[in-house]
Each structure stands twice: as C-alpha cells, then as structure tokens.
C-alpha cells in the first residue's frame, strides 16, 4: 500500500479509466514527492471545468509543488489557460464558467461554497496573457493597487513594497525615476513586468502566469524569465506557455495538457519533473509534442 501510494503520488497524473482506485483516493493533501523538501502548495482532485454545458476540462489531478515553477504546456485550446484560471477561481468570472471537483491550497478547499473567491485571489495571484496595467494610475499606484484594497498603510511602507516588488520583477532600474508617470507609457514588456510587480505586492502564496510572454519580444521575454528564477525563492509559480524551450529552461515540473478527440474536454495527459517530460516522457503524445512533431 505504502509503495503503491508513493508510486501513485509520484505520478500525479492518473487516468481514471485505467486506474479505478484513483477515484477513491484520499482528499487529504499529501506531499507528492517523498523524500524531497518540497510540499504541495496546491492540489487539484478530479477537477473539471465547464463553460455552460460545455466541459472544457475533465478530471484534472495535479499537485503543485511549493517554491517550484510548474509549467503547463500543450496544444492550443486544450484547457491550460482554463485550468490556471480555475486555480484562483477566475474561471467563474467568465459567463457560464463553473468548476467541479476539489482544489486545495495548503490543504484548504478553495472551491467550497463558503469560500470567497476574493480571499482566494489574495493568496493566488495572476498575471495575464496581455499586459493590463490600469491606464488611469501611475506606475507607483499600479503596483500598490491590490495592496490598497487591504487597508491604509504608511507611505514609507508602500514605497518599500513598490521598490521591492519592482526589483523582483526586474523593472526597478528602468522605472525608478518615473514612478509617477502613467503605466501606459511603458513598453509592452515593461507593462507585463509592472503587472507582475502588482501581483507580487499583494504577497500571494502562488503566482499564476497565463502565457505572460506570448505577446512580448525576445528581450522582454528574457527579462521576465530572469525575474521568475528569483520569484520561486518566495513564491510558488505556475506558468502556462506555448514555448517549449521556455518551459524546459525555467520550470521544475511540467504538465502536458492534451485533447485526444475533437470536442472532448482537455485532460492533463502527463505530469512529471521537467527533465523527465523533455527527455523520456511516458506517453507517446507527450513525446510527439515536446519534440515538435505536432502542435
């Protein structure tokens, strides 16, 4: 039993049809990797997501490791973005958006009826595909926009947060002399890093990034990747990316999402350490994808 469990946990992806006992799996959060210092920050148990009647994601089981970068890859439209949007309950914001299953943040149910999504989002921050700074706010105000929701703070404290988070987002040197200017005056890459700083200022446990570099040039992408390396010291990072090199470069774990037939919901096809996924994946589709044979 013990060994089986270890084996099961070491491969958080389970296909319920092959392994019926997966259904009875305990909902208690478990450290996914025995013997490693890392623990699960977030655990999804048979998580499904819907848009109205359409099932976009089916039975996702995953355990996201604390202070690690988890990359989610896969062809377009296979539910990667939907999945990260489930993690901080942004999915429900879309008309018809609905989540089933269990989602735990440090053992606490995130999707419970009595859990306020507002509270979840303070703990699980998100950076979007397109930079979306608030155009009416200055750079400074953009960074502390989320912080201000939590109540008044001393301006010295705020300045400190602004500098720290902008440094973490590798943007400080570029904007330190123009903090009072509009965030819209920045380049696309700078705007995205501003959005990262804004997310960090709230001090979440987990930072979700939905293809944060897809709309950016290579230099900006490089800067964001550099910033992420430092981020995992303090945060757990989940990043959706189209770019497999990026996933291979920066992530510790990689999840591959895949849709077998047109119209099926997306599934987490394989989840493992990044080195394993990119060198010797267990499933053929994963191998085809990471070697660039489709997608």
């Amino acid at each position: 039993m013990e060994s089986e469990k270890t084996k099961e946990e070491s491969k958080p992806f389970e296909d319920p049809e092959k392994k019926p006992d997966a259904r009875q799996r305990s909902v208690e959060p478990q450290p996914a990797y025995r013997g490693e210092p890392a623990a699960s920050a977030m655990v999804a148990e048979r998580l499904s997501a819907y848009y109205g009647a359409f099932k976009a994601l089916a039975d996702i089981n995953i355990s996201i490791q604390q202070n690690k970068i988890t990359a989610l890859i896969g062809p377009s439209g296979c539910g990667k973005s939907t999945f990260v949007r489930c993690l901080n309950r942004m999915h429900e914001v879309t008309p018809g958006g609905r989540i089933e299953g269990k989602l735990l943040l440090y053992g606490e149910d995130v999707c419970g009826r009595d859990v306020d999504p507002v509270q979840v989002r303070r703990k699980v921050g998100m950076v979007f595909q397109k930079p979306n700074p608030f155009p009416t706010m200055s750079i400074y105000d953009n960074v502390i926009a989320g912080l201000k929701l939590g109540g008044r703070r001393k301006s010295s404290e705020l300045s400190e947060v602004v500098e720290r988070t902008l440094r973490q987002a590798a943007l400080w040197d570029e904007v330190k002399d123009k903090l009072k200017e509009s965030g819209m005056a920045l380049s696309g890459g700078q705007q995205q890093r501003l959005c990262i700083a804004r997310t960090l200022a709230v001090e979440p446990e987990v930072v979700l990034m939905d293809e944060p570099a897809s709309a950016l040039d290579p230099v900006s992408t490089q800067k964001i990747e550099d910033a992420m390396e430092e981020l995992k010291e303090r945060y757990t990072v989940v990043i959706v990316t189209h770019n497999m090199q990026q996933a291979a470069r920066i992530s510790d774990y990689t999840g591959f999402f895949y849709i077998e037939n047109m119209g099926d919901p997306g599934r987490l096809w394989e989840f493992d350490e990044t080195s394993k996924i990119f060198s010797s994946p267990n499933r053929k589709e994963t191998e085809d994808y990471v070697t660039g044979r489709f997608g």
Binding site: L105, E108, V118, Q119, V120, K123, G150
Partner: peptide, 15 residues
C-alpha cells in the same frame, strides 16, 4: 491554520 477563512474587520467592511 486557516488562510482563506481569515475574516479581518477590514475584510468584513469591504464585503
């Protein structure tokens, strides 16, 4: 430790 159920006075005011 319950992280999500923390209900500070500030949070209650916001809600």
């Amino acid at each position: 430790m319950s992280q999500l159920a923390t209900t500070s006075a500030r949070y209650r005011r916001r809600k």
